[in-house]
Write a protein that binds this DNA or RNA. Structure first.
Lengths: 197, 197
DNA sequence: AGCACAACTTGACACTGACAAGATTGCCCG
DNA sequence: CGGGCAATCTTGTCAGTGTCAAGTTGTGCT
């Protein structure tokens, strides 16, 4: 689309004037988002933190949407990697929740589509990788054990894990979880719900 | 907190210069949010749509956060009303999903805490109303049927419904749901998962 | 060595949220 | 019934932001 864009996104780490500005800005952005959400993100503020001029970030991410899209794409990659190590569906759910807790900024941005460039290549491939990983985990539970549609099992598992993770990050489960380990709470919860499938 | 604020929030409809500016701005805001998310919200744009000056909205909502907080509070009220009519836990879940589809802007704002004034009175009371409604629906399913903790049943049901609704609004289930009625999909899904509790 | 290009800077413009201070309007109460 | 008064809205302003355009600096390659 835009031939002016560098597009050498993640080859080797850059060693230029700044060092690795792209990573520095990504990292600062993740801090800000984790603390105050994507709406608190300011490119100029990120530039200030990195000690560069206010327009420097644009060279790496084109614009605000580009930065958030890069974060989402990275997040889907990380999520796919995490899910690919799951032993079964329940374990995949636990890893999903763990991912959301360990990468809250990624998680939040990944599922806020109006902030993203939906047709971005790295984003769509990352999303596809994560979807494949989920499908793989779901394939372990036999279709006839669950219901008519095998995809329904995937939707159910995804909904449960995603809802739990989302509510957790929004501090909506603080009372119910208490001081227990959220992942353990989710495990027992998933075991109870899925015990018969 | 702020004694300058009018605070006569929702008595009778105002009949002043504009007519009912407060409602007009709320309504326009809901349109914008439903279409492009909360980050696309601009007070000046809302003022323009309502045909008033750029600073008029501030008189009704103090600032951007105030507007979003009012939306969230209204949303929790609507959700509580919907849940209070539920016949059982599964029906509450279906109504939860229906609420999210019918009021996507409310839903989105309600669960984005960093956009809200968390200590706002109307918000906290609205949230408490909705929480009560959920607890009421959960109380129908007996604790020993589910597991040790009865609250766990609430967390499970809430997570499932919230995750399904969130993924649905984000168009993450378009493929799996197809052209079926999402509420029906959720109903079968919840029936399968909760059939034994 | 020098050239092409990536990385960054400087400057500008339109837009936004927020605040202060003034103008207008309907309502209440004497 | 009319005068004050408070709620409603306007005007003006300021700092901050995203984005674009054009210039500058450094780097690796040939």
């Amino acid at each position: 689309m835009s031939p002016t864009e560098p597009k050498k996104t993640d080859d080797a780490p850059r060693r230029y004037h700044h060092g690795d500005l792209r990573r520095a800005i990504l990292s600062a952005a993740l801090d800000v988002i984790a603390a105050d959400g994507p709406s608190a993100l300011s490119l100029r503020d990120l530039a200030r933190r990195a000690g560069v001029s206010h327009a420097a970030p644009a060279h790496h991410f084109k614009d605000r949407t580009g930065l958030l899209t890069a974060i989402a794409a990275e997040g889907f990659g990380l999520l796919a990697a995490a899910l690919n190590e799951a032993s079964d569906l329940k374990d995949a759910g636990v890893r999903y929740v763990r991912f959301a807790r360990e990468h809250p900024a990624h998680f939040q941005v990944m599922f806020t589509p109006e902030l993203l460039r939906g047709d971005d290549l790295e984003l769509t491939t990352g999303r596809a990788l994560a979807a494949d990983a989920l499908r793989e985990a779901v394939s372990a539970v036999r279709a006839e054990d669950f219901g008519v549609d095998s995809r329904l099992a995937g939707v159910a598992a995804w909904s449960l894990a995603h809802g739990f993770a989302t509510l957790l990050l929004g501090h909506n489960l603080d009372g119910a979880v208490g001081d227990r380990d959220p992942e353990e709470v989710f495990r027992t919860l998933a075991t109870t719900l899925f015990r018969s499938v």
